Simulated assay, not measured.
Amino acid sequence: MERILLGLILEFVGLHLLAQGQAVRRAARAFLSTAVRAEGEVIALLVSRVGVSQRPRPAHVYLPVLRFRTAEGTLVEARSPVGGNPAPAAKGDRVGVLYDPADPRDVRIDTVTGHGTTAGRLLTALGVAVLVAAVGVVVSGVW
């Protein structure tokens, strides 16, 4: 009975991770399908906490604030929703920027990890791994 309960919990977590991964990948692909490229500069790095406090210190994600000119010449400063640890770029770095022409404040650094597709792939892979573990727990009695 405990195996089945553990298997169900793992299945729920795996399906949730899989769904989140696919949602992140779809959003990243939608953004990339309309994004316009520009050259910009990282003008700041905002620190965002991830999860609950951990000892000796909580985990952080560094979100870049970018300054660039749109194709029309408008100067824009905006924070990317995609960051990392370590930071995806340092303050003062010149970077390629992708932005949504309908909303130029919707920006990403133009790198594989900056697009958000890598995070989606990782969540999807983790979801699949947890689902496989759930099957293993129920079928073979592992754990």
Score class of each variant (00 low, 15 high):
Met1Asp: 08
Leu15Ser: 03
Gly51Pro: 05
Thr34Gln: 10
Val52Thr: 01
Asp110Thr: 05
Leu8Asn: 05
Ala129Asn: 02
Gly116Pro: 09
Leu98Pro: 13
Gly40Asn: 05
Pro81Asp: 08
Val24Cys: 00
Gln22Cys: 10
Arg105Gln: 15
Gly136Gln: 03
Gly84Tyr: 12
Thr70Asp: 12
Arg121Lys: 13
Val24Trp: 07
Ile43Arg: 15
Trp143Pro: 05
Val24Pro: 04
Asp106Phe: 13
Val135Glu: 05
Arg67Pro: 00
Val42Leu: 13
Gly136Cys: 11
Gly7Arg: 03
Ala35Thr: 10
Ala133Val: 11
Ala44Tyr: 01
Gly21Pro: 07
Ala35Phe: 12
Ile9Asp: 00
Glu41Tyr: 09
Leu63Lys: 15
Leu122Val: 13
Gly141Ser: 10
Phe31Ser: 07
Phe12His: 05
Thr111Val: 02
Gly92Pro: 04
Val47Tyr: 04
Ser53Lys: 11
Glu11Lys: 01
Gly7Ser: 07
Glu72Gln: 15
Val95Glu: 06
Val138Ala: 03
Gln20Tyr: 07
Ala19His: 02
Trp143His: 07
Glu11Ser: 03
Ile43Met: 10
His60Gly: 09
Ala90Leu: 14
Phe31Lys: 04
Leu46Asn: 11
Arg67Glu: 03
Gly21Tyr: 12
Gly141Val: 06
Arg79His: 01
Gly116Tyr: 09
Leu8Ala: 08
Ile109Gln: 10
Ser48Leu: 15
Val137Pro: 03
Val82Pro: 10
Tyr62Leu: 10
Tyr62His: 14
Asp100Asn: 15
Leu131His: 00
Leu15Gln: 07
Asp106Gln: 15
Gln22Gly: 09
Thr117Trp: 07
Val128Met: 12
Val130Trp: 04
Pro88Asn: 11
Val139Asp: 02
Val132Arg: 00
Pro101Gly: 03
Val112Ser: 15
Arg37Val: 14
Ala59Glu: 06
Pro64Cys: 02
Arg49Ile: 05
Ser48Asn: 13
Thr118His: 08
Ala134His: 01
Gln20Asp: 09
Ala133Asn: 11
Leu17Pro: 00
Thr74Ala: 15
Leu6Glu: 07
Thr113His: 06
Arg79Thr: 15
Leu63Glu: 06
Ile4Asp: 03
Pro104Arg: 09
Ser33Trp: 08
His115Thr: 14
Leu8Gln: 01
Ala35Trp: 12
Leu10Gly: 02
Glu11Ala: 07
Val76Lys: 12
Leu5Met: 06
Glu72Phe: 01
Leu32Ser: 09
Gly14Arg: 10
Gly120Arg: 00
Trp143Met: 06
Arg108Thr: 02
Val52Arg: 12
Tyr62Ala: 11
Val97His: 14
Thr113Asn: 14
His115Lys: 13
Val36Lys: 12
Asn85Arg: 15
Gly136Pro: 01
Glu39Ser: 13
Glu39Ala: 12
Leu32Glu: 06
Ser48Ile: 01
Thr118Val: 15
Ile109Glu: 13
